[in-house]
Amino acid sequence: MREGLDQWSFVIAAYAVGVAGTLATAAWSWLAMRRAEARRDASRKRRGRKGGGQR
């Protein structure tokens, strides 16, 4: 026996979960990368400044 379920609500739920999950992971990875590279560049600059002062 088949239940009278509205198939479109399941389709929309699956698309919402799938798209939101993918975009959130992509955005989080991108931001984490930018933050880590900014931290590395800042530490490089600090070290460069310190090296310049010693010379």
């Binding site: 990875s29 931290r39 590395r40």
Partner: peptide, 14 residues
């Protein structure tokens, strides 16, 4: 692939 590359770049930078 983009997510993997971004995570690898973050790990290298860290």
């Amino acid at each position: 692939g983009g997510i993997v590359l971004a995570r690898m770049r973050a790990l290298i930078a860290e």
